[in-house]
């Protein structure tokens, strides 16, 4: 499954629908292909289905219909263990951070590495380096409740990128940080993108779209309005 640039397709959605419980579908007829190493913004008004789409892509919610292929695997055919292996290749920044309050900042960030079976020496080196880069070196032993919203968001981002995932899904990752930190984070995301990580970043920030122009996925009413390759901020 290759696109026009000859890159592997890591995500493919065909006629995907998703609903919460027995309610109405919040995602309808989603067709989408994402290539390895690509960068996309996901935009749309509140309630358009951005977060729901990210939940489907992060394999945290099952689809109601259609087909979802992740890293070449139809997720409906995977058992829980193999699904777990795929999830380890995906970094997710949640809108509500979802940090574990009883763990230190260090341990929160180290979590994906520990789950992946990394040795403690490597974990210590990677996590310390990441936290220092994000300006959180002095907060390694702090617990999330002691941090500001912005700091928590940084910790959530650090946790999502610490394994250098193949796919990074970020839901409003710069909404709670100051402009300087937001810029630093965008730098981090674009650097990851350059290193080969595909990034899908849900945002409301026109500033981001202007300063770092990448294809835009626009959502409304649970539908994806336009194919990514045809839509760039410049074209708008």
């Amino acid at each position: 499954m290759d696109d026009d640039r000859g890159q592997a397709t890591i995500l493919q959605l065909l006629g995907v629908g998703m609903r919460y419980g027995s309610g109405e579908e919040v995602l309808r007829d989603i067709d989408l292909s994402i290539n390895a190493g690509s960068f996309h913004y996901l935009v749309g008004p509140s309630g358009a289905g951005k977060t729901s789409l990210l939940r489907v892509l992060s394999l945290s919610r099952p689809i109601a219909r259609g087909k979802l292929v992740v890293f070449g695997h139809d997720v409906r055919e995977l058992d829980r263990d193999r699904l777990g292996r795929l999830r380890r290749r995906i970094g997710v920044v949640f809108q509500d951070f979802r940090l574990l309050d009883h763990l230190s900042v260090f341990d929160n960030v180290a979590l994906p590495l520990r789950i992946g079976g990394a040795d403690e020496e490597r974990i210590a080196a990677h996590v310390s380096q990441m936290l220092a880069w994000l300006g959180l070196a002095d907060f390694m032993e702090a617990k999330p409740p002691a941090l500001s919203m912005g700091q928590r968001q940084l910790v959530a981002i650090a946790r999502a990128v610490i394994t250098r995932p193949d796919l990074l899904l970020a839901d409003e990752p710069t909404s709670n940080v100051d402009p300087a930190r937001a810029e630093r984070l965008m730098y981090l995301f674009t650097e990851l993108h350059k290193l080969g990580t595909a990034v899908i970043l849900a945002t409301h920030s026109r500033e981001h779209l202007r300063r770092w122009p990448f294809p835009v996925l626009r959502m409304e009413g649970g539908r994806l309005l336009s194919p990514p390759a045809s839509e760039r901020l410049a074209a708008e």
């Binding site: 945290s60 777990g84 999830r87 979590l111 994906p112």
Partner: peptide
């Protein structure tokens, strides 16, 4: 909820 998060981070059930 926390178990769900661990799974989302790729933790297998045995973990």
């Amino acid at each position: 909820e926390t178990v769900g998060l661990l799974r989302l981070l790729g933790a297998p059930d045995r973990y």
